[in-house]
Nucleic acid binder design. Structure first.
Length: 1014
RNA sequence: GGGCGAGUGGCGGAACUGGUAUACGCGAUGGACUUAAAAUCCAUUGGUGUUUAUCCACCUUGUGGGUUCGAGUCCCACCUCGCCUACCA
């Protein structure tokens, strides 16, 4: 082939790209008569670097699918847009001191030119850009709908904070625990954040995966990320430490003036405490003889000589204080429920309690409390009060706050005076003070007898609560502070030893065995998951084992592996010899559960929980690793969150008619010192009138994350110019769900999950017709650099697609990207390999030139058959995304056609048709040169003839003991008899089996005959 | 540590439900064309051995076992690499 016979890609490609655009060849109209096919690529982020050689790989692949689908008669939607908000642009803007909006505009322009040079059949008329106000107006509108639905809330959350850049970082900006930009170790900072309740959808996000067609590994990644685990919450009671020794558990309950009603709330407490082995004294005194009088006090102390705890209610409170003062006895804890201020004027209550001795009560006012003395005698004071108590005013509580500031004051809203007539008010909180307990989450309740200690996360609230009981509180506090200051990296570094500290003086009771076990605080237990506390079973959990070994805590084996002797199982001794056995098995050392299996419907897992449930000590529980979605970003370049903080009304939505809340232009994009968004500094933007009351208000200055705009862009494509709705119901009904969605594996957790959640929320609001956004999801492999590493600017190994297009043409680039390897796998780029596909296209071109002179009919049967086989193969390969083998099939056909003696125009045209999705420019050029007057891309996809695909004659294989020994040409439907007959005449085979004994013969129709000899 | 996936020539890779391993492409070698080079075309190209008339034999899909008439493909163990994830009880 000479130079002249090579085609000029510059000329051809530009010509057709312009023509197609002029003719609107790829503009899609909604057409209910045609079957729709919605084919979607992840829209790119228009970075300053421009397109990278990885983009065309997936775009071409889906372009091929889209083109084929069109030829098959579908109405195809194949749109394109840009996901343009986000940090890289903001950072770049700060660096070059330009407006991110201007930078974005330039970048998109560059991307458009590049994308257009590839001959992709996008419908550019539907282009969507997330940073356009017409687009983000609707992102904000949807946010408001979700806000109104109660899916959005505000919460103080620790965010990643770079102390050097003074900036909040998104998770994806933290690389190995360090700031992506400056390399400083990232710490945590508490900031109020807007959150999405994605956890509410956790179960549905798992369940509905059954209704969609995703690659298995994508499904499993989603399921893993959501991380459902079934288990149980079990309460471990804390042993009240001061009672452990010589003291008896003795509680005195002192009621108020309404002594006749004390049964309204005392009995339950009395019962519970008695069940726990406490002695309980409730002075059963007539109301008229209320215990203010010193005589009574003395009598009381005589009869209850060893009281460790006093619970008092209402007027019982000053009485109890008086009691403590007068008797000068040490009390462990004093719990005051709705305590009365003794200085209060009680006259107005005379009528309500006519039987009370008001003369005696009035003496309260005369009491002189010696607060110092009282406080010396009581170790711990707890005060419960309510916000709607008709008898106890806030001033009463202030009285106690003034005199006993050390007490813990607990407001329980809506409890009234804690003595409602209608029923008994139970105060589990109070019980927690008397008999505190730790709730733990476990997936292995069957190992509970092996729980030799408890571990609390450092942030666990019980630590503070047990403060008076902890003998080494200073040490504990130091540990907690230290672990809070640790960076995430340090805290999750598995290589480092686990650390922890024991709460000395505190013991917990194993509810199954009744054993006393120590309680530790350690940061290998996470606050955010489960209950923030675990029972440690060192014999059957690696982490617990490691910790127990370090701190010399007991290890009790309670599960024995079931020994099954089977060749297909790992050897049982290997399992048995491990110090930690985390599998299932039979129970030992577990009291009455010994001998049960750990698993199964009748196993210990179920049985133990059932039994503990009856005692009110356990409950089945399902936990998810998935956390709520932190939706706030303290950055400039994102959609403003359309909320307003009003001094009077609190948080108020921006009115729909006032959307979009536009990003103001500012001079400085640098984040602020405080971690607030740069928007906070723009006074005339921040200060607004409240949409509700018209009063003073401030705008929310946080912006949305990138994931917002990309959660619903595919909906906008269906109706991109609608200014009344985000998309019309009609368009949504016709086009959704997306039939085929391709993207990178790196987006299968975050983007895909967020987007599915967002869509489900819209579905619940009846704003979209389907509960799942994407019917099918596939994923492409990365294009690696020639050295096999990731392409990156810093390594200087990036290949620019523009250079390839310039030198070899878009068709060549497209075909090479398809040919390089399996679509789903990462493949290194090989510039040398490109010439192979270019040579192939040159061959096609040459064949085309020759074909012009050919007759309409007359072709070798062999070529005809191969053509039909190739049509079949290419059709199937595109359906299965096996583009590499489709290309190779096309190459084989072209090689054969080149060497063929006889070939006709129709055969060549069919080749062009099946090649056209891969190389749209060249095939269009040749198609029209051959005298056709309509674009090849408007033609139908050719069908193969099944008769021609089947070979008449086949190469039949003769094996001896499975090894190939001979081949012979046979009719496709050859019988065993015919083959055997052939064998008898074959001297070669006869020789080979001459001195052997033929055991049997295996005949596989249409394939082979295997002779088994000895 | 967990999850998923992959190991096939000098290289990228192919092989449908177990049935001819190495398709297709790159590279390499030799030849044709050319003053020469490029381009193009033709031939060869997994390894070893033997023979050189190119016939033949044996070996070969990370390693070691197993199932089977037959294993790149299925099972078990191990090794290596990649991606995602990370103390989730």
């Amino acid at each position: 082939m000479s130079e002249a016979e090579k085609y000029d890609h510059h000329l051809i490609e530009k010509k057709w790209q312009d023509k197609w655009s002029q003719d609107g060849l790829y503009v899609t109209k909604d057409d209910p008569k045609k079957d729709k096919f919605y084919c979607l690529i992840e829209f790119p982020y228009p970075s300053a670097e421009g397109l990278h050689v990885g983009h065309p790989r997936s775009y071409t692949a889906l372009d091929i699918v889209a083109r084929k689908k069109r030829m098959e008669g579908n109405n195809v939607l194949f749109p394109i847009g840009f996901d343009a908000f986000g940090l890289p642009t903001e950072n770049y803007a700060i660096k070059v001191k330009k407006n991110p909006a201007d930078i974005t505009k330039d970048n998109i322009e560059r991307f458009r030119t590049q994308l257009k040079s590839l001959g992709l059949s996008f419908d550019w008329s539907r282009e969507v850009v997330t940073t356009d106000t017409e687009y983000y107006k609707w992102t904000q509108w949807i946010f408001l709908q979700l806000y109104k639905k109660g899916l959005v809330y505000q919460s103080e959350m620790p965010i990643n904070w770079c102390p050097s850049c003074k900036i909040g970082l998104a998770n994806e900006e933290v690389v190995n625990g360090k700031c992506e930009r400056c390399g400083t170790e990232v710490t945590k900072k508490n900031l109020k954040q807007w959150m999405f309740k994605i956890t509410q959808y956790a179960q549905r996000l798992i369940d509905d995966l059954d209704t969609v067609d995703y690659l298995e590994k994508i499904k499993s990644q989603q399921i893993n990320w959501i991380g459902r685990s079934e288990g149980a919450e079990v309460s471990f009671k804390i042993k009240y430490p001061r009672l452990a020794g010589n003291k008896t558990k003795h509680c005195l309950i002192v009621h108020g003036v309404s002594g006749h009603r004390r049964e309204n709330w005392f009995p339950w407490l009395k019962n519970v405490l008695q069940e726990e082995g406490w002695q309980v004294g409730v002075p059963d005194l007539p109301a008229t003889d209320h215990p203010v009088v010193n005589d009574w006090t003395k009598a009381l102390m005589d009869s209850f000589s060893d009281v460790s705890t006093i619970v008092c209610h209402s007027l019982g409170a000053p009485a109890a204080l008086n009691l403590i003062q007068e008797t000068n006895r040490e009390i462990d804890q004093l719990i005051m429920v709705a305590p009365v201020n003794p200085l209060q004027d009680w006259k107005h209550l005379n009528k309500e309690f006519p039987h009370a001795d008001w003369d005696a009560i009035k003496k309260f006012a005369d009491l002189k409390f010696d607060w110092k003395k009282i406080k010396q005698n009581v170790r711990k004071v707890v005060v419960y009060y309510s916000d709607d108590d008709p008898y106890i005013s806030p001033e009463s509580i202030d009285f106690y706050k003034k005199h006993i500031p050390e007490a813990s004051f607990k407001l329980l809203p809506g409890k009234g005076h804690f003595n409602e007539r209608k029923g008994i008010i139970k105060l589990p909180e109070l019980l927690d003070d008397l008999i505190p307990s730790v709730k733990i989450f476990t997936t292995r309740p069957d190992t509970i007898f092996g729980a030799t200690y408890l571990v609390l996360a450092p942030e666990h609230e019980l630590v503070e609560k047990l403060k008076p009981e902890i003998n080494n509180f200073e040490e504990v506090e130091k540990y907690i502070k230290a672990s809070q200051n640790k960076s995430d990296l340090e805290r999750t570094d598995l290589a480092k030893d686990k650390t922890g500290v024991e709460l000395k003086g505190v013991k917990a009771i194993n509810p199954a065995s009744g054993e006393e076990i120590p309680v530790w605080v350690a940061d290998y237990v996470l606050t955010g998951y489960g209950t923030g506390a675990i029972m440690a079973v060192p014999a059957h959990d690696e982490r617990d084992f490691e910790f127990a070994t370090k701190y010399k805590l007991p290890v009790i084996k309670v599960i024995e592996p079931i020994i099954v002797h089977s060749e297909n199982q790992p050897h049982p001794e290997i399992v048995a010899n491990k110090s930690v056995f985390a599998g299932e098995g039979n129970l030992i050392n577990s009291g009455k559960y010994n001998g049960l299996t750990s698993f199964g419907k009748l196993g210990a897992k179920v049985k133990i929980i059932e039994d503990l449930k009856k005692l009110g000590l356990a409950d089945s529980s399902v936990q998810y690793k998935l956390r709520d979605w932190i939706f706030s970003r303290q950055h400039y370049w994102g959609e403003p969150i359309p909320l307003v903080h009003c001094e009077k009304c609190g948080i108020v939505s921006v009115l729909e008619k006032d959307l979009p809340v536009e990003l103001p232009k500012v001079k400085n994009y640098e984040p602020t010192e405080t971690g607030e968004s740069p928007l906070a500094g723009i006074k005339d933007w921040v200060n607004v009138k409240c949409p509700k009351c018209g009063g003073k208000a401030k705008r929310e200055t946080d912006t949305m994350p990138n994931w917002a705009g990309s959660s619903w862009y595919f909906l906008r494509y269906t109706d991109p110019h609608n200014d009344k709705e985000f998309a019309s119901q009609q368009a949504l009904k016709y086009w959704t769900p997306v039939d085929l969605y391709n993207g990178g594996m790196e987006h299968t957790t975050l983007h895909l999950l967020y987007s599915r959640f967002w869509h489900k929320a819209l579905y619940d609001l009846k704003l979209v017709p389907t509960s799942e956004p994407y019917q099918k999801r596939i994923s492409h492999g990365m294009v690696l650099a020639e050295d096999g590493k990731k392409m990156s600017k810093s390594l200087g190994n990036v290949i620019n697609p523009d250079d390839v297009v310039k030198e070899y043409g878009a068709d060549t680039l497209r075909m090479y990207e398809m040919f390089m390897g399996p679509f789903a796998e990462a493949i290194p780029w090989d510039t040398k390999g490109i010439v192979g596909v270019r040579r192939f296209l040159d061959k096609v071109y040459l064949l085309g030139l020759r074909a012009k002179g050919l007759g309409v009919k007359g072709v070798d049967e062999k070529i005809k058959s191969l053509l039909h086989k190739t049509i079949k193969k290419v059709t199937e390969d595109i359906n299965e995304f096996r583009f590499n083998t489709a290309v190779s099939a096309l190459m084989i056909l072209v090689n054969e056609m080149q060497g063929a003696r006889k070939i006709d125009k129709i055969t060549f045209e069919k080749l062009l048709l099946i090649l056209s999705p891969f190389a749209p420019h060249l095939t269009e050029e040749l198609w029209l040169q051959l005298g056709n007057n309509k674009s090849i891309h408007l033609e139908s996809w050719p069908k193969f003839d099944p008769r021609l695909v089947k070979d008449q004659k086949i190469e039949f294989v003769i094996q001896i003991n499975g090894k190939l020994k001979d081949k012979c040409l046979m009719p496709a439907d050859v019988t065993e008899e015919d083959v055997l007959q052939y064998l008898e005449q074959s001297s070669k085979i006869q020789e080979l089996i001459a001195d052997k004994q033929v055991v049997k013969k295996i005949f596989v129709p249409g394939k082979l005959l295997n002779i088994v000899v000895k």
